[in-house]
Design a protein around this nucleic acid. Structure first.
Lengths: 228, 228
DNA sequence: TTGCCGCAGCTTGTATACAATGTGCAATAA
DNA sequence: TTATTGCACATTGTATACAAGCTGCGGCAA
């Protein structure tokens, strides 16, 4: 049994991982031929995969010139994270009243797996997935699939940068503590405090990323002092 | 000079119009071969167009079974419109302080064209575009491109139903009056009132659509009394 | 030298042809 | 009759082949 229904879907999934993993810096051109050889398929499914990734905002097509990975400006990153605050507090507020014991336990289970992986110094590769799975479990009872879809989309777009932040800082433990607190507040039905915590949780991550990028930009400027 | 850079883009645009225009009821299968003949192109650009429309939520792919137009449940329609309230009041609040005289005049110009078209009983076909153009003009000064993209996406998804509402009710004049009021409030910088009006503007449209759909569903049930 | 034009090569976009999957009908057996 | 199996057809998914557009370099003219 093949892992995916179509080659295009397989390529899209794998390529998404490679882009989010940082293999292609922002602005890289993605040559269809090269990717086709990579995956041993024709260019057709590659093109379809690239179109899918375009709809997720990871890639941009320029007609007759090809596909390029997108590069988010600092302003856009801030915008993305503020949108996440808006939408995620909105959905959390509506999810908490519907949370069942079982769902709360599921969320706690995810956190425990986290902690274990953290102790054993497992690779951080799938931290993002764990992270989103936890949030998703908390949000699901709101029963707002369209909203969830957009939140998921925003998370995908910012994922690269979240990984970058985790690579350069030691924020995982802090995020993890906040997750435990968030879960506790949700369990107790303290909606206001939970949303407040979520907001700072997201915004602090944002500021962490921005400061890394700003530092990097400054370093760049010193290396290339010409103002072209 | 061709109107579009690629055939795939042309097909996507035209097909979007046909779907929004109601040519394909929700759940219709879109046969690639038939569309290819329609546009006198091969199936490749048709497939790419369908993928684009999938990313806009107008179409759903089922592997090896084809593409189908999506059908929104009443619950999802409500969700879409509540998201619009959330995002559009958010962006309007941030746009109003930045609005220049020129932009306000642009918006007024759009309204005037509206009114003229309304008097001359021109086709309502492009009412949706006018409508969105007006809102967009008001929102643009917020300088939040990602947010605008999502708002645009939500509007596309709900567009079919907005057209339906306009077809069945005489709400255009009311909407138009509200637009004038909205513009006036924005001009005066009365953010709170403007957002409040926008909220009811959107929610009342939603309720109009839902009541039409509910009426239709009831009619359906009476025609087909078997409970399959 | 400098600016512009045109061609060559490379990459993307699309048509055609083939492979693979899903669906429905027909034949068979219970 | 009804359920089930298998085959044929319709449709989608993908490979190959070809057309079209862009880019950059070299030559030519000012």
């Amino acid at each position: 049994m093949p892992a995916y229904k179509t080659r295009a879907q397989f390529v899209a999934n794998d390529l998404r991982g490679r882009i989010l993993g940082g293999e292609f810096p922002g602005g890289s051109q993605l040559r269809q031929d090269a990717l086709a050889k990579d995956y041993d398929v024709s260019r057709i499914p590659v093109r379809e995969a690239l179109l899918t990734l375009e709809s997720e905002g990871l890639v941009e097509f320029h007609a007759h010139r090809g596909a390029f990975t997108t590069e988010l400006s600092i302003a856009k990153i801030r915008e993305l994270f503020e949108l996440r605050v808006l939408l995620e507090t909105y959905i959390l507020k509506r999810a908490i009243p519907n949370l069942t014991e079982e769902q709360l336990d599921d969320a706690e289970g995810i956190l425990r797996k986290y902690d274990a992986a953290l102790d054993s110094r497992g690779q951080i590769d799938n931290w993002s997935e764990y992270n989103f799975a936890f949030h998703q479990t908390l949000y699901a009872p709101a029963n707002l699939p369209e909203t969830m879809a957009i939140i998921s989309q925003l998370n995908t777009k910012s994922d690269r940068y979240i990984r970058m932040q985790l690579l350069y800082t030691q924020e995982i433990e802090k995020a993890e503590r906040e997750h435990h607190t968030l879960l506790a507040l949700s369990r107790e039905g303290r909606i206001e405090q939970a949303c407040q915590l979520l907001e700072t949780h997201i915004l602090e991550a944002c500021e962490g990323i921005v400061s890394i990028l700003e530092g990097r930009a400054q370093a760049q400027q010193q290396t290339l002092p010409d103002t072209r």
